[in-house]
Computed example of a mutant assay.
Amino acid sequence: MDVALVGCGRISRKHCEALEKVEGAKLVAVCDLIPDKAESTGRQWGVPWYTSYGTMLSELHPDVVNVCTESGNHAGVAIDVMKRFGCNVIVEKPIALRLSDADAMVATAREAGVRLFTVKQNRFNAPIQMLKRALDEGRFGRVLMITSRVRWHRAQDYYDQAPWRGTWAQDGGCISNQAIHHVDMMQWLGGPVASVYAASRRFLHRMEAEDAAVATWQFASGALGAFEATTCANPRDLEASITVLGKEGEVEIAGFAVNQVRTWAFVDERPEDKQVQDASYIPDSVYGFGHEALFRSVLQSLATGQPNMLEGDEGRKALELVSAMYESIEMGMPVELGTPYPHSRLGGPHVD
């Protein structure tokens, strides 16, 4: 399938590298509003480059468009691509900054007869896949607590690279940018969330949004969740981990990209448990290696028509949790899921 990429920023390299390794995927063009970015990316990967995605899509008619623009522009670009050009879309995280925009994206895909997917590559990490399988098989018994810690390093120059970074209108802070993958994994593993109670600070960086946050979650199942995120770790990335504690088992996946099995113990030991360490790996960055498996999964779903665990509705689930935490931060009180979040600052002044 022919794939075109819109947005040649920091994450675009990971998309291009992964697509090159996926059989049946062909990167046919790239686009960015900044000519130098578009040209350098196009030359690096040996494909045509554009500064107008409308021109690119009109000329090439790709099967899939990967949207890697600023987060605040995900919705506008994705909706236009699906509605005007009839292309399937893979949109980077977060799916959007406003729930109303995410809903419009899902509705547009349905009306246009195309597919919308969101990037949650950590779901494909081998240790996370094993953890999910253990949960589905009931090995934990009653799940008691799920904890996620994202302790990463971002120097000021990271935020200074582009004027939109760390802004409420286009990005948000460590919750919506860096830790949204871990928000997604907590709800994917633990199921629906009833309420959240969050607090945040801006400790070290010159930016609008937060660089540190904590939250407690109440899962609908009765389990408790503990969430921690920051970009204030110094001098380097410290960890990105997730822990599940149950009545009959305990698992901790650690490393700086949920890539290392640190603890794997169950009351009902199985022979295959001795091989769990084989699932650990050393990634080249906090992005891990999940993009390749993600693209392979999406292209297979497009070829067969089968459902996929990364459909647009899945992206909305993580965004709602992020919105609820931002609402709680502004209100200073617990917030129930499924209610409006009018005080959330993510995406700029708005009422969803």
Score class of each variant (00 low, 15 high):
Ala229Pro: 03
Phe266Ser: 09
Gly86Met: 06
Trp164Val: 03
Val258Arg: 03
Lys37Tyr: 11
Gly191Phe: 01
Asp63Phe: 05
Gly246Phe: 02
Leu204Tyr: 04
Arg142Gln: 15
Val322Ala: 09
Val91Tyr: 05
Pro235Lys: 13
Cys31Gln: 09
Ala134Ile: 03
Ile11Cys: 03
Met333Ser: 13
Thr147Arg: 14
Ser40Arg: 15
Arg154Asp: 07
Asp80Tyr: 00
Ser328Arg: 10
Glu23Asn: 04
Val335Phe: 04
Gly46Cys: 09
Gln178Gly: 00
Asn177Ser: 14
Val3Trp: 04
Thr263Cys: 06
Val22Met: 01
Ala169Val: 10
Ser12Arg: 02
Met185Gly: 02
Leu97Pro: 07
Thr147Trp: 03
Pro35Phe: 01
Phe203Gln: 14
Arg236Lys: 14
Ser100Asp: 13
Ala126Val: 09
Val22Leu: 01
Gly46Thr: 08
Glu210Arg: 10
Ser148Asp: 04
Gln170Cys: 07
Glu314Cys: 04
Ala318Asn: 06
Gly113Ile: 00
Pro307Glu: 11
Gln156Val: 10
Gly225Met: 04
Tyr287Phe: 11
Met130Gln: 13
Leu302Gly: 07
Ala303Asp: 13
Asp103Leu: 07
Thr51Ser: 07
Trp152Arg: 12
Cys68Gly: 09
Ser328Tyr: 12
Phe227Asn: 00
Pro283Thr: 03
Gly246Leu: 02
Arg84Trp: 07
Tyr326Gly: 03
Ile242Leu: 15
Leu131Met: 11
Asp101Ser: 12
Glu59Asn: 10
Arg151His: 10
Ala169Glu: 15
His181Pro: 02
Ala254Gly: 11
Met185Leu: 15
Asp171Ala: 12
His181Asp: 14
Tyr158Phe: 15
Val67Thr: 01
Lys120Gln: 13
Asn88Ile: 00
Gln161Trp: 05
Trp152Asn: 08
Gly76His: 07
Thr339Val: 12
Gln275His: 14
Cys87Ala: 13
Gln44Arg: 15
Lys21Cys: 03
Gly305Asp: 10
Thr230Asp: 04
Ala215Tyr: 04
Val298Glu: 00
Ala25Glu: 01
Thr51Ile: 11
Pro307Gly: 03
Arg236Tyr: 12
Ala213Lys: 02
Glu311Leu: 01
Ala38Leu: 00
Arg139Tyr: 04
Arg316Asp: 06
Pro163Gln: 04
Asp184Asn: 12
Cys87Lys: 02
Gln170Tyr: 14
Thr69Cys: 10
Glu311Gln: 08
Val47His: 03
Ser344His: 01
Met186Ile: 02
Leu310Pro: 00
Glu210Ser: 10
Ala324Ile: 06
Asp273Glu: 07
Arg202Trp: 03
Asp32Tyr: 06
Ser328Lys: 09
Cys232Pro: 00
Pro62Glu: 11
Thr304Lys: 11
Cys31Ala: 12
His350Lys: 09
Phe117Ser: 00
Phe203Gly: 00
Pro340Tyr: 11
Val28Ile: 14
Gly76Arg: 08
Thr118Asn: 14
Ser52Trp: 09
Val64Asn: 04
